[in-house]
Amino acid sequence: MATRDDIENWLGQIALGDRASFSALYSATSAKLFGVILRVLDNRAEAEEVLQEVYMRIWRHAGRYRVNGLSPMTWLITIARNAAVDRKRRRVAIPADMSAIDSESDSGPGPEQRAIAASENARLSDCMDELDEGHAEAVRRAYLDGETYAELASRFDVPLNTMRTWLRRSLLKLRECLSR
């Protein structure tokens, strides 16, 4: 399993054009980023396309990452989530018979991936329970359902900056909880 230092080092090397570091980063992070994208899009084929776009962005913009004490995975996940939300907004309606064909050919995760996911889901669920109920719902809607800050602010009837603060503070609490 890659450490924070590994990922930060790979990003630094990628900024210099190091393909081996890019390959290592992809191997260490692609499953997680794919999961984030798939949760937003709920379409495996489309999620695979977006994942490719995400790694192209990472290749081009790795030099923008700044070591700041926060997890580099947060930076990568933000890129993936934003790309998925962008794609979801641009989405063209697919005929019902085409989506049925795509879903039949999808292969699900294997037993090991399901066990790891279940363990991670349980930890995350426990940490989400520590958040205020409204804040937890806002985090779910933003990062799992792909709702924008503006949509959430309207839904919860709070100013946009308040929603941003809710989400930022909630993510910090989650990070702290998950690091215990």
Rank of each mutant, 00 (worst) to 15 (best):
D6N: 08
I7F: 06
E8M: 15
N9E: 15
L11G: 05
G12P: 05
Q13V: 03
Q13W: 02
Q13S: 08
Q13R: 07
A15M: 01
L16N: 14
D18W: 01
D18F: 02
D18E: 08
R19F: 06
R19G: 00
A20G: 11
F22C: 06
Y26A: 08
Y26L: 04
S27Q: 11
S27H: 07
S27P: 00
A28G: 14
S30T: 01
S30L: 04
K32H: 13
K32C: 14
L33T: 04
V36A: 01
V36M: 02
V36D: 00
I37E: 00
L38T: 05
R39H: 09
R39N: 15
V40H: 05
D42K: 12
R44H: 02
A45R: 07
A45L: 05
E46N: 07
E48P: 05
V50Q: 03
V50M: 12
L51W: 02
L51V: 02
E53F: 13
M56K: 14
R57Y: 13
R57N: 11
R57H: 15
I58K: 07
I58Y: 07
R60P: 05
A62W: 06
A62H: 02
G63F: 13
G63Q: 08
R64C: 01
R64G: 04
R64F: 06
R66F: 11
V67A: 07
V67K: 12
V67Y: 11
N68I: 13
N68R: 14
N68C: 10
G69R: 08
G69W: 03
L70V: 13
S71W: 04
M73P: 01
T74G: 11
I77W: 12
T78D: 08
I79L: 05
I79P: 01
A80P: 00
N82G: 06
N82K: 01
N82I: 04
N82R: 03
A83Y: 06
A84I: 02
A84Y: 00
A84K: 00
D86I: 04
R87V: 02
R87P: 05
K88P: 02
R89E: 00
R89N: 06
R91V: 01
A93I: 03
I94S: 07
I94P: 03
A96F: 08
A96Q: 12
D97F: 10
S99W: 03
I101E: 05
S103R: 09
S103L: 10
E104W: 01
S105Q: 14
S105N: 13
S107C: 14
S107D: 10
S107F: 09
G108R: 10
G108P: 11
G108F: 10
P109A: 14
P109H: 09
P109T: 15
E112G: 03
E112L: 15
Q113L: 15
Q113N: 11
A115S: 14
I116T: 10
A117P: 07
A118E: 15
A118C: 14
A118Y: 15
S119G: 12
S119H: 14
E120T: 15
E120H: 14
